[in-house]
Structure formats: C-alpha cells, structure tokens
Design a protein around this nucleic acid. Sequence first.
DNA 1: TCCATATGTAACCAATACGTTACATATCGA
DNA 2: TCGATATGTAACGTATTGGTTACATATGGA
Lengths: 109, 109
Amino acid sequence: MDSVFLALGHQTRRKILDIVKSMPGCSVADVVKYFDDISRIAVMKHLDVLEAADLIVSRKQGRRRELFFNAVPIQMIYDRWTTEYSRFWASRALDLKYLLENPSESAET
Amino acid sequence: MDSVFLALGHQTRRKILDIVKSMPGCSVADVVKYFDDISRIAVMKHLDVLEAADLIVSRKQGRRRELFFNAVPIQMIYDRWTTEYSRFWASRALDLKYLLENPSESAET
DNA sequence: TCCATATGTAACCAATACGTTACATATCGA
DNA sequence: TCGATATGTAACGTATTGGTTACATATGGA
C-alpha cells in the first residue's frame, strides 16, 4: 500500500505508467524516448519503483524487456476507496461545511 | 496530486488521517495520544504533510488546534480513477492475462 | 498571578530519494 | 563475426524525509 501511493506520488512515474498502459509490451527504450529531460538510468530507476509496487510487470524478451501495466494494485486501492470512503461523502464530508459556516474568532492558519 | 499520494504513502499518516476523520475537530494532542512509538514532534511533522496536501484543514482555537479531515483531494483522485481507469478494467486489464497465457521462453525476472 | 497545558520552532542526524556519469553485459542482425 | 543495440550495475552527489532533543511561546484555569 505504501509503495503504490509513493510510486504514484511522482509525476514522472505517473507519466511512465500512462505510457506503459497505452503501449502494452513496450520496451524500456520505448519509454525512455518520451523523456529528454532525464537520463535513461533515471527512467529505469522509476521503472524499478513502479515494478516494486507491482504497478508494472516486466519480462525479458531477448535483449528487450517488455513492460506491462498491472491494474491490480490500483484496483485494490479503488476498492478501498469505495468501501472506506464512499459512505463517508454523505455523512462526514460536512466537516468543511461546518468550518466554513462557523468561523472561529481566531483566523485560520 | 504528488503531495496527496506522497502523504498517503506512509502508514503513520494514513493512521492519522483515519483518526482525524473519525474525530472531527480533535486537537493535535488527541492525535498524539495514539502514538507512543514516535514523538509529538514527529506526529506534528506528519500533520504538516497532510495539511500541505490539503488532506487536513486546521484552525487555532485558543491554545488548541482543531483538525478536520478534508475529503476533497481524495474525492478528486477518486474521480480521476473513475474517468481515467474505469473503462480500462474492461479493455486493458487483459495485459496480465496475456502474459500469463503466453509465457516467454526466458524466465520473467 | 502563576503553574499547567498545548502548541510551535530550531537544530541535528541517519536514511532515503532522485538525479548523474562510467562501465559492463547480453542480444541482435548485417 | 563484430559492431550496434538494449539493458544492467556501481558509484557518486545533492536534496529531502522522518525521526530526535531542546527550547520557546501562547493560552487556560485554579
């Protein structure tokens, strides 16, 4: 769980995930082409993070490594949202409403 | 976006979020009570991270600081899942299925 | 008024994150 | 076969993170 959130908490990695998602089986080099502002090694490190978080699955095909998006961890988090927070919207999303309708005398910092 | 994921990518912070969510208006000290393995200052630092990510909103009430859970950033991410990935389940979640049904000759590393 | 309570800030440290360059290894294809 | 291509590893440096202790400030209430 930590690793999935942490992996997603970096814009480059989310972009990588989008690329792999839209090009199943693409290679590392295919991904690297989309980044001219960071090195190949940096991209690979990001891929390592995504793979450690199971967001990407890879397999070696000769000298190429094929990358695949793994929807499962995101599905798990998505499921957690719906069970943990969905009923929350109705009953508890009033916190902020309460705040806004009951301004305190001291300014909010 | 980065900040929300990063904030959630740490177990202590998710626990803090749960506490604040279940006790709207609770104080810093209320939260600190649930953690005997880390210091008050560490807890406050985590609160800073959650507040910077807008996951928590606070206001000073005299010598107390009241903490409120803010559902909006999570709602935004939740909405992103549904638009970005929901149709993905049906059409693209076959990536792994493809992998498992077409083992390559070289072992997956 | 003054002690208790609640929070805040600063400094420090070790570990981690994220980038880099250099070098190495494996596979492909002409 | 050999150069090209693709990937991998190691080492390094800087910035950030997540914890700590020490000290400071503000408010509450007896």
